[in-house]
Nucleic acid binder design. Sequence first.
DNA 1: AGCTAAGTTGACCAACCGGTCATGTTGGTG
DNA 2: CACCAACATGACCGGTTGGTCAACTTAGCT
Lengths: 204, 204
Amino acid sequence: MPRADAARNRSLLIDAASAELSEHGLDVSIARIAARAGVAKGTVFNHFSSKEELVSAILCDQLDTLAATGESLLEQSDPGSALLRFMTAGAELQANDRAFCEAATAVSRAHPAIRAASDRLAQVAEALTARARQAGVVRADVTGHDIVLLLNAPTQIAAPLATTRSDLWQRYLRLIFDGLRPEAAHELPVAAPTSEDFTTAATR
Amino acid sequence: MPRADAARNRSLLIDAASAELSEHGLDVSIARIAARAGVAKGTVFNHFSSKEELVSAILCDQLDTLAATGESLLEQSDPGSALLRFMTAGAELQANDRAFCEAATAVSRAHPAIRAASDRLAQVAEALTARARQAGVVRADVTGHDIVLLLNAPTQIAAPLATTRSDLWQRYLRLIFDGLRPEAAHELPVAAPTSEDFTTAATR
DNA sequence: AGCTAAGTTGACCAACCGGTCATGTTGGTG
DNA sequence: CACCAACATGACCGGTTGGTCAACTTAGCT
């Protein structure tokens, strides 16, 4: 059981790191985060053994939240709109969070907690996709792994204009979603990624 | 007229920087580049007044090459396949070049030479899109600016698995291209970006 | 109240960065 | 061959980073 002030400082740190990361991206300095939390730099390393550990903790939280959102969407009656809402939630998360945006590409999937959260996310994405596929609103050759990879896309596409057109990502989300529909489907030249692809990419 | 060894060193530097940037991304150190070129660090700043200048020079080159590719594709008879080839060329460039990939999002469009190259790229993209739109192979509400923004997408989407599945970007390029077709088109919630959006985003 | 372990602190460290500059070297010209 | 300007060089600078640690403070139990 931690001491009272330690618990409070830890919570302050997580809040500060979360805010600072989302505003300034993955390479904010530890000093900045500590200052925002109102503690000394040493305290940060007292709670998290390294910067990576701190970043992972916050990233993990957000992945879990997204997975939970997806799970609740599984109970919705319309499979197509459920999938669209899931993808919207994923894109929105990144639209408001620079670090999450960069992390999607860069951060090590090697960290075990992140691996776990990613797996949970992959499962719910597959479930949502399967329902939509069965309902005929999504083409047959698209899998849950595709959806996970596509979560980043709208924000990344709109990123160069994010400062002036903050809602532009919605346009590209819908454009991509239209590409998922069966009506315009043409054969894809490369097979969908497998679970093994993800795990071997992680261990490298 | 430069001295003989100066010209040779400059060329060595450009080669080294190009290779190092494409392998390790935008934040390779100048020291690394200099070492690869076999010259001292000071020599780098003798040829380029700052790191930004060096990176811009190389980026500019690649943007120009891509624009030239697009212009030659304007002479092709099939507008749809011309557009697809253009987007393939853009995605391929990034699949082999980490710096170009990051630059698409991050680098200052403030640099005048890059602005010029971007404008040229925007023009050819608009021309290719207009032809494809008119031929009915691309939906009416998609513009050349959309295409420019979408050039990054396939590689970014496939980035997490790039080490194990180096050709995966092709899958997402085709998926996005299917979203551009009229058959599956649903109304888009946000208007396409304008030229002003790009210029105001650049000056900020 | 008093004691101890848990926690906080900020000075400190080594490594690295982009960039500068006095010094030495060398290509090209007459 | 001699000479000078163009160029190469690497030690050096100020700044920043993630991370450490001995000294101090304090929460919480008896």
